[in-house]
Design a protein around this nucleic acid. Sequence first.
DNA 1: GAAGCGTTATACTAT
DNA 2: ATAACGCTTC
Length: 650
Amino acid sequence: MQTHMHLNENQRIAAQYKDAHILVLAGAGTGKTLTIMARAAYLIQRGVDPGRILLLTFTRRAAREMIDRLYLSIGKSARDVTAGTFHHFCLLTMRRMSKQFGIQEYTVIDREDQTDLMKLVRANFLKKKVIFPHASELIKIYSYARNTNIGPMKYLKKHTDHDEDTMKKICIVFKEYDKRKEANRYLDYDDILHRFAKKLHDDPAIAEKLRGLYDHILVDEMQDTNPLQWLILDGLKEPSKLFCVGDDAQSIYAFRGADFRNVHSFRRRVPGAVVLRLEDNYRSTQSILDVSNWLLKESPLNYKKNLKAKRESGDKPALIDFETEFDEAKWIADDLIKRHETGASWSDHMILTRTAWNSRTIEAILVEKNIPYVFIGGVGLLQAAHVKDLLCLVRASISHYDELAWIRYLTLWPKIGDITASRAIASMKEAPNATEAIHVMKKQFKTGQKIAEGPKLIQKYINEPAKALKAGARFLDPILSKRYNKWMSRKKDFNLLEQLAERYRSLLQFIETYTMDPISTTEATRSEGKDCVSLITIHSAKGTESSVCYIIRAEPGMYPYIRSLGEEDEEEEERRILYVAMTRAKDELVLTRTGTRYGKTVFHGGAVGSYFLATLPETLVESQSEWEGVFSASENSKNYGVIRPRKRYQ
DNA sequence: GAAGCGTTATACTAT
DNA sequence: ATAACGCTTC
């Protein structure tokens, strides 16, 4: 990282550009974040009210970090800048104008709830057993179609090969899903953007108001915004000025509707926009960039990227082979300990993983060896079954429309399954208010009195989330302790939850925050600023950096990921994922791979399927094999078997 | 008909 | 770890 707010010429020109919409094309490590912050600082110093600056980032973590850094540079006024993700910003704004947006009493639901709701709709729609996409697949299709602003039918025709009849049925199911969602007063992630964008474009009075909120909109990771997000920027951009920063080579969210080409069309979309470039890399050594550059050059797409280091050439990246993921994990843990003993901080190390579950082995070893770490990405604390049980009790207490929460809560009780629960909930829907609804529900069951106690308990503490959770946890304890093995270790999560909740003024706010920004258990436990190793998915690692980076499981079937094989667009996205991973490293890059694929040892001969590192020139890395008795690392890559594309899910 | 239990299959990325 | 499924019990 460059010294604080010390800008090079191009960064300075970008940060201080006047009166224009600006796109900054900034390669990895060229000081993207620094330039955005310098822009904010410059604007504020020139007299712009910080409250009239909107900073849109990709994760809430990124927003927090930027505001913290801005605080160090310009002080208190940094806190007045609105910073967050598109979803966060849109929801916040809609909550402030909840009457105009008609979202009072609405509950935000996550992907899992979306899928569960879709399951109900799907089951209702299908008479008998027919071949029909699963709920998770339906949600994926619908979400993608909405984020790219194309109709579901158009999407289905373009991306699947279902027959006409099935496609029509799928579209009907989507309509049913919408209806059910509305009846439950749910907002899914896509609704948050969609409702906002719709008002912005269809309601001139509200649009006028929204456009007047900010003078400057700064957007990080522009390459990963999708067409729906673009509608939002487009609607807000006059008289506000856009300052967008991105890099096509780091676009890794196509599955969410982003298109890496979208930064190229910026000038067409925004007439008169100025496009600037940052090309000097301050982050990494040249040896790390050499491998990264090589990877992009191998692509059939022309990224026109050749990162040049401002730093020394440094050590060559290492490529190390292991027989099993267990060996790999142990080696990394020992390497970390060695480095720590010679004076390095744990926090100088980042372990990058393609998939969240791939990190399980290494996580176990880190725990075993007492290496402090934080896991970022993947499944959250709030997804654990027992935590969901408690949160659903809370949700049910807040909203009597919340069908999923009620089903979950009611089915915790003996002799109540989903069918009985659904019936009771259907009768509740008629009730005019929450109190009446609970009264109606109570009468359905012999144990009704006891069942109704839970929500009543929670309702007492609507504005004291920690107390509500404590009361809820105590209330559910007898049921949950019977339900789960190892209950004592699960129960600990409730204390953690209570601690988190203390920071919030209402239950609604607490639930909403963590629904939109799920965190892992280690992330919740870690005290701020603690020295620890980061174990992180590459998708979550965007925008971060570390002195030493380990990219684990860099074997065939992983880069490109096995499911993308055969689809050029998808394989190229996988290339960018690996590129993002490599360019996080400042001083040392260690690629490790195993001979295990899906639990089986792979060392049969034959041609290599699509595997990026198969053609990696030996001069670019130091190869090493910890796989005793087997061929050397360089031979190794040639001896991996053919990888065939897995049958695609329809 | 519905609940509940035990067995088996299964894993990408995320707001 | 959990969802899905088949089977048994109420």
